[in-house]
Design a protein around this nucleic acid. Sequence first.
RNA 1: GGCCCCAUCAUCUAAUGGUUAGGAUUCCAGAUUUUCAUUCUGGCCAUACGAGUUCGAAUCUCGUUGGGGUCACCA
Length: 461
Amino acid sequence: MVVTRFAPSPTGYLHIGGLRTALLSYLWARRNNGKFLLRIEDTDFSRNDEAAALAIVEAFKWVGLEHDGVIEYQSSRLAIYQEYAQKLLDEGKAYKCYMSKEELEALREEQTARKERAKYDNRYRDFTGEAPEGREAVIRIKAPLEGSITVHDGVKGDVVFNVADILDDFIIARSDGTPTYNFVVAVDDALMGVTDVIRGDDHLSNTPKQIVVYNALGFPIPRFFHVPMIHNHEGKKLSKRDGATDVMMYKTLGYTPEALLNFLVRLGWSHGDQEIFSMTEMLELFDPSDINRSASVYNVEKLDWLNSHYIKNTPNEKLCELLEFHGVVLISHDKREIILDAIKERAKTLVEMAALITEMLTRPEVFDEAALKKGYKEESKAILESFAEALKNASELHLPSDYHHVMEEVVGKLEIGFGKIGQPLRIALMGKLSGPGLDSVMAIIGVDETLARIDALLAHQ
RNA sequence: GGCCCCAUCAUCUAAUGGUUAGGAUUCCAGAUUUUCAUUCUGGCCAUACGAGUUCGAAUCUCGUUGGGGUCACCA
């Protein structure tokens, strides 16, 4: 049984980097028919945020990740941590330390001045006397004093830490009785049966401390996979300043969950030359031991490419649903198939798609000056008039091909090239020289609207 | 600064110690398209540096340099 978990601290939204580790954890759990748990790390009450968990669940829902079981909140598990802290106290594996924050601070300053590593000096490690008057104690765990701790990491390999370099008797419970991160993470992962910890490699240096806790409590140590960070263009850890880091922003920006997930899974992981991965394929192929060791730079261009790929390959019915979020309702539009077919090949995002559709469906208010200069010539007026006349005489105009025939007819009769009619007609229909195929546009807006737009241009000139 | 991690095109990445170092994105060019976009074809661009091991190194070892992470009564 493989059990993985995603354990964010409540920051108010799901971060793009968080989504990646969540995705990888999810994939690995599902691939093994295991469980993927969600736990909110809210032991620091000063920055607790109720809405934060909801935001994460909302984002999960959007991308289609589903966690198993109930959401565990560490803030509601305080009794459990106290119990285990007490257990360590009883067994002599932890002890109360009465040093004040000020004393600690002073010690640190002294050590730093001597260019030593700032660490607790173990002054209460073997203390047996009476508790000093009026002091609230913290609980410190007895960490090994020498030797080394090796993290067997599925991504980085064996990482050896020298105890003397990194460890001291770190605090597992604050003076107000609340537990600290490295303690609760280990306790919870053990109690919840987590077998595979997949998380960002910024946690690698915390891992020895957690191993100390596992060992003290006699819990089995899980497999660790420390996934490299996602960097921004400056090569630094991705932060809020780097634009869209909130997963739900991607929905607003018109990205599909499939594209986002596909993009994220390919950051630091690959399967030969394959670029496109459906959820089914990810589930079949993903293995955390294939994760790369080096950080990767977050690069939106590839996301855009993936997104346009997924838009092109999404059935119209589905696109229709997605577009509603962006303010375009086509569900009852009788030409919606033609609209979607004409637009889906030319948009990188759903937002672009929505804009393109709205633009096409709306009669142009202005005609682009540069376009007129380039595409509206002396003979254009007569050509457009002939075309309008042909349209009026035609019957049964429904499909793009019907309109195409009319255009062919006019072009043949006047003995001109397609460009002679295409350019002015495009200006009439779109107000500019770019856009979807003219036959599609006309089929979508219909004969009357086409004639109206031609008239509007002729009146304008 | 201590400790830890990392190093292949601009970016994401591939390469049982033996490949003209491959693919993808971006960019550029051409073809297709009445336009733009799509699509197709082609092109540019990389093993950080220095030693060592080896018949042979992107790959193994050491060093250098560079980058990142982490060092709380935060998580």
